[in-house]
Design a protein around this nucleic acid. Structure first.
Lengths: 210, 210
DNA sequence: ATATCGAGACGAGACGGTCCGTCTTGACAT
DNA sequence: ATGTCAAGACGGACCGTCTCGTCTCGATAT
């Protein structure tokens, strides 16, 4: 007996997501209780338990609400220069990861996902998959333009672009600056370059090794 | 007034880590309470609170206890064939990520790390850094053998090898099989290959040159 | 050498608080 | 009439702190 979604109060829904967003930013996700969200939102506890299965699910929706001003389908910039476009997008991602409200929520979401398989599935379907499709589209466009090898594994290419970036941010292993973004894009394109695009190594990042 | 480490009961320490390991495997990390760990370990609650600042810190030590049969310094295989060695190591990592007890603990640890900066620092120092050093050493050896570009950014190279692997596992985005491990190694080596080791696509084992 | 003693970690668990997830109530909307 | 809503009561679990009495030490006194 699922609740009747048609009669759902949008007012309460938004109040819950906003309260969750603010509380997570203020006291940190682990110290946010569902009771506190309800209090802050001016909402009955049951209203939260009726519509969300877990605190993590609320976090997921709060993330979606924050990063979804776009409304319709997501489209990445396509100026014809794949390398430049990817650097632009990666820098934008860095900015999102740096935004306090969004980043606190995203950290919480990744934490719950690591430990909650059902939430992970929800995340993949509702957040990751649409984004991945948009990114893949841009890579395919670059591939058609001869900027990637015709046989390149584009999914793997995406992993190379985003996984190191996300991990560095999650582990706080280093700054998400333009140097790192650029190095990531350049090395990835090197790995998936078309056959005879032989241009030797450009510069090496400053602190390479000791 | 930190407690006197010299008088610490090793018996209790090990019992706590074992109890944590077992409980996490049995009921899942979020449902493991410190009280339950103490009960299972036959240990006073205070003994846990005395030596660990949080449940996540216990998880970190439990992971260390599990993956630290090695004792001394970590060394990666070095047969002279970098590509083969990296595939070997990545497959071993996949096996660790598949082991039920270790993987449940590791998921918990990554979840806490995402949200707890202090624990993240501890993780980087005690777990990640030593491992990274060992991996870097192997890459340097390959670099000296001419299997990597002399100016290659080895830290970035490591990110390429491991971050996509870890993320795929964390997000349950796909199987951690040999095909993925091999593709990861091949594409990474392509990105950091020495200058004129042309012959792009279908990767071929590097010929030992010297 | 042996006995005494104090410090501190130990197992056990009491304690007040918080939060969990469920359930009940009465108001309100459709 | 039905179902969501805000509000909050409810028993139970767990939190983190604390107080017990026991035990193992090393230092000192005999």
């Amino acid at each position: 007996m699922p609740p009747d979604a048609a009669r759902r109060s949008d007012r309460s829904r938004l109040a819950v997501l906003a309260a969750a967003r603010d509380l997570v930013a203020e006291v940190g996700y682990p110290r946010v209780s569902i009771e506190a969200i309800a209090r802050r939102a001016g909402v009955g506890k049951q209203t939260i338990y009726r519509w969300w299965p877990s605190k993590g699910a609320v976090a997921l929706d709060a993330v979606r609400a924050l990063s979804e001003g776009e409304g319709g389908a997501i489209t990445l910039p396509d100026t014809g220069d794949l390398e430049a476009d990817l650097k632009t997008v990666l820098r934008a991602t860095a900015a999102e990861f740096t935004d306090p409200a969004l980043s606190a929520l995203l950290r919480a979401l990744y934490a719950e996902i690591a430990v909650d398989p059902e939430l992970a599935t929800l995340y993949r379907e509702k957040v990751d998959h649409p984004l991945t499709e948009a990114k893949l589209a841009r890579l395919r466009s670059g591939q058609r333009a001869g900027q990637l090898h015709p046989d390149a594994d584009l999914a793997l290419c995406l992993d190379f672009l985003y996984a190191p970036f996300t991990q560095r941010w999650l582990h706080r292993a280093g700054p998400l600056d333009e140097a790192y973004a650029d190095a990531l894009v350049e090395a990835t394109l090197r790995a998936f370059a078309p056959a005879h695009d032989v241009d030797p190594r450009p510069s090496r990042p400053p602190q390479a090794d000791r």
